[in-house]
């Protein structure tokens, strides 16, 4: 069975490395980057799910979300942020984010979201 491809974009490198390793241990093909410019390289490989931090140093998370959806609308994006701003949550959902999670995230909850997101992507591709 083909492994689910996950891209993590977050400016906190420590977080990216730990989360990448944990998801890899759970059988996911995971890549982690700390800015959008690096993320673009992996986006070409069309990941199934992107875990995206809303506050990036080089570009606003919402803008990144729009770009990802422009590249491939079937890529499912799980937004991640340090604070639950209702306005940003609503905006990201409107821009096509799959879901929105507040840091720190429970790994099991994240895995569950990834699985649902993957199913959604598969349905979208059909």
């Amino acid at each position: 069975m083909k492994k689910t491809k996950i891209l993590i974009i977050d400016d906190e490198s420590e977080l990216v490395s730990a989360l990448t390793e944990r998801l890899t241990l759970r059988g996911y093909n995971t890549f982690g980057v700390t800015n959008f410019a690096d993320g673009l390289k992996f986006l070409n490989k069309i990941p199934d799910v992107v875990i995206l931090d809303i506050g990036l140093p080089d570009m606003d998370g919402l803008e990144v979300l729009k770009k990802i959806k422009e590249i491939n609308s079937s890529i499912q994006v799980i937004m991640l942020s340090g604070y639950g701003d209702d306005e940003k949550v609503n905006k990201s959902l409107n821009y096509g984010a799959f879901d929105y999670l507040i840091k720190p995230v429970d790994i099991e909850e994240l895995v569950s979201k990834i699985e649902t997101a993957k199913l959604k992507k598969e349905e979208a591709e059909k």
Binding site: L15, A18, L19, G55, G82, K103
Partner: peptide, 16 residues
Amino acid sequence: HEINNPLAIINEKAGL
């Protein structure tokens, strides 16, 4: 926001 980021790191490192 400031605290949630290091908390997330702690969470992920401990989880790892």
